[in-house]
Computed example of a mutant assay.
Amino acid sequence: MRKRHHSTGEMISTLTFIGVGLWCLGTGLEAPPLKATVLFICAGACITGAARNLIAKALSRD
């Protein structure tokens, strides 16, 4: 198995996904119910995006 090196751009986008996901979680805790629901969905999508490399590795059939 070949070791894969992550580029600087991949690392920056991962940190951005984490930051936006955490911001959405924090904002969702103080928002009205409908807005909070949308923010929690967005937070989940961002955190999933941050874990995209781990998810791809887990689903890989190599």
Score class of each variant (00 low, 15 high):
residue 30 E to W: 09
residue 25 L to D: 00
residue 3 K to P: 00
residue 38 V to W: 06
residue 20 V to H: 04
residue 14 T to W: 12
residue 20 V to S: 02
residue 62 D to H: 10
residue 37 T to L: 13
residue 44 G to K: 09
residue 21 G to S: 07
residue 38 V to Q: 01
residue 5 H to N: 05
residue 46 C to F: 06
residue 41 I to Y: 06
residue 26 G to T: 12
residue 44 G to W: 04
residue 25 L to P: 00
residue 2 R to K: 09
residue 24 C to A: 15
residue 27 T to P: 00
residue 7 S to E: 12
residue 61 R to G: 07
residue 61 R to S: 06
residue 29 L to D: 13
residue 43 A to T: 01
residue 30 E to H: 08
residue 42 C to N: 02
residue 18 I to W: 05
residue 36 A to W: 04
residue 23 W to N: 09
residue 23 W to F: 15
residue 59 L to W: 05
residue 53 N to Y: 12
residue 11 M to W: 05
residue 46 C to L: 04
residue 6 H to G: 05
residue 24 C to E: 07
residue 38 V to C: 01
residue 29 L to G: 15
residue 11 M to S: 14
residue 31 A to M: 12
residue 47 I to K: 03
residue 5 H to P: 00
residue 23 W to T: 08
residue 62 D to G: 14
residue 39 L to F: 11
residue 60 S to P: 01
residue 39 L to V: 03
residue 28 G to A: 10
residue 25 L to V: 13
residue 9 G to Y: 03
residue 55 I to K: 00
residue 39 L to W: 09
residue 41 I to Q: 01
residue 8 T to C: 01
residue 5 H to F: 10
residue 19 G to Y: 08
residue 13 S to W: 12
residue 23 W to A: 07
residue 38 V to N: 02
residue 31 A to H: 07
residue 45 A to H: 01
residue 2 R to A: 13
residue 27 T to F: 13
residue 43 A to F: 02
residue 32 P to C: 05
residue 58 A to E: 06
residue 56 A to Y: 08
residue 8 T to Y: 11
residue 59 L to R: 08
residue 55 I to D: 06
residue 56 A to C: 09
residue 57 K to I: 10
residue 27 T to V: 15
residue 25 L to R: 01
residue 39 L to N: 02
residue 8 T to M: 09
residue 5 H to Q: 12
residue 34 L to R: 05
residue 9 G to V: 13
residue 30 E to A: 12
residue 2 R to H: 11
residue 12 I to W: 03
residue 5 H to V: 15
residue 52 R to C: 06
residue 46 C to H: 08
residue 56 A to V: 11
residue 14 T to P: 00
residue 18 I to H: 02
residue 26 G to N: 14
residue 12 I to E: 07
residue 6 H to K: 10
residue 28 G to S: 10
residue 22 L to R: 00
residue 39 L to K: 09
residue 16 T to V: 08
residue 14 T to C: 09
residue 15 L to I: 06
residue 5 H to C: 01
residue 31 A to I: 00
residue 14 T to G: 00
residue 44 G to R: 07
residue 56 A to P: 04
residue 50 A to R: 01
residue 25 L to Q: 02
residue 54 L to G: 12
residue 33 P to G: 05
residue 59 L to H: 04
